[in-house]
């Protein structure tokens, strides 16, 4: 024991190391390849302009696609379907706040990084050039790499990204994207979404995908003790009895419900990824459903 350690300065939390790049890519391709091979259209491509067919309206269809004339003739609502051919600009947006450091033994940052690298790799393999925004308030990083090494560079960026002490409010990212995006794009948002969100300004012009990353403890905290917010670096000693836990869970459920209703109203697909689960099956399911 070294007594002088007593007086060392406090240290910040470093992101937990990501799995080796090759391992990550291998796992990613194994999970997502069935979606990317054969005659399938790209799951990341947007809806095209070429008319394909008229189909019965199903709840969730964009009301702007309703073919009113045909609906009047057939006496039930029908919608126009278009071929998914048009290539959209793909944006991977990571809300890289300090809160993403949470999770033991696997952090939310590690899961989010896995998702981002996998999506980047998938996009490159389909011939797209995804743009990446690592959003931290006041310290945004924008990557636009068309080379085949782009996923590796993203991996390296994520490996050394400092999250401690940074906030990443979702509305800040929305504003940033609104000011910069000119072309219709597909925006994949990755974050923990612990705040009310309003994505309608983006959803009016762009297609969105929301990937929510959480730890099980954040959903159901169990222990009393010293808690710390890595974004503000503030600590609080909390005594969590069943009543307080219930109160927290209720508040979180209300927030998630409001966000889910909001995303559903905008037709934004959403997926939840827990740190104690393998993210690839959930990602494959989300992308497969979108095709």
């Amino acid at each position: 024991m070294r007594p002088l350690e007593l007086f060392k300065g406090s240290f910040g939390s470093e992101p937990q190391p990501l799995p080796p790049y090759e391992t990550l890519i291998l796992q990613s391709r194994r999970a997502l390849s069935p979606l990317l091979t054969g005659e399938h259209d790209t799951p990341l491509a947007g809806e095209g302009l070429e008319f394909l067919e008229i189909d019965d309206y199903t709840p969730g269809d964009d009301v702007r696609r309703i073919n009113w004339r045909a609906s009047a003739r057939s006496a039930h609502p029908v919608v126009n379907r278009f071929a998914r051919r048009r290539r959209l600009e793909v944006w991977l947006v990571y809300l890289a706040g300090g809160g993403m450091l949470c999770g033991d033994p696997i952090s939310k940052h590690r899961v989010a990084s896995t998702l981002l690298v996998a999506l980047s790799d998938a996009a490159h393999r389909m011939g797209d050039t995804p743009r990446v925004l690592l959003y931290r308030k006041g310290a945004e990083s924008f990557l636009a790499d068309a080379s085949r090494y782009a996923p590796r560079r993203l991996y390296e960026q994520l490996s050394t990204l400092v999250l401690e002490g940074h906030h990443a409010p979702i509305q800040g990212a929305v504003e940033w994207l609104q000011n910069r995006l000119r072309r219709r794009s597909l925006i994949v948002l990755v974050g923990d979404f612990f705040e009310p969100m309003d994505l309608s300004p983006l959803a009016a012009r762009h297609e969105l995908l929301a990937l929510q990353v959480r730890t099980p403890e954040e959903i159901d905290p169990v222990d009393s003790g010293l808690y710390r917010d890595p974004a503000s670096r503030r600590e609080s000693r909390l005594a969590l009895d069943p009543l307080r836990r219930q109160r927290y869970k209720k508040a979180l459920q209300n927030l998630d419900r409001d966000n889910r209703v909001h995303l559903d109203s905008l037709g934004i697909p959403q997926g939840r990824f827990l740190t104690d689960e393998d993210p690839f099956p959930a990602l494959a399911a989300l992308l497969g459903a979108r095709r």
């Binding site: 350690e5 007593l6 003790g225």
Partner: peptide
């Protein structure tokens, strides 16, 4: 020492601390 000494106690990082604190009450 409060400012600079290290503690052995486990400190849990928690991304949604504001909501947790509100639920736990101000103490």
């Amino acid at each position: 020492c409060l400012r600079f000494c290290r503690r052995q106690e486990t400190v849990r990082n928690f991304g949604n601390l504001a909501m947790l604190k509100n639920s736990a009450g101000r103490r």
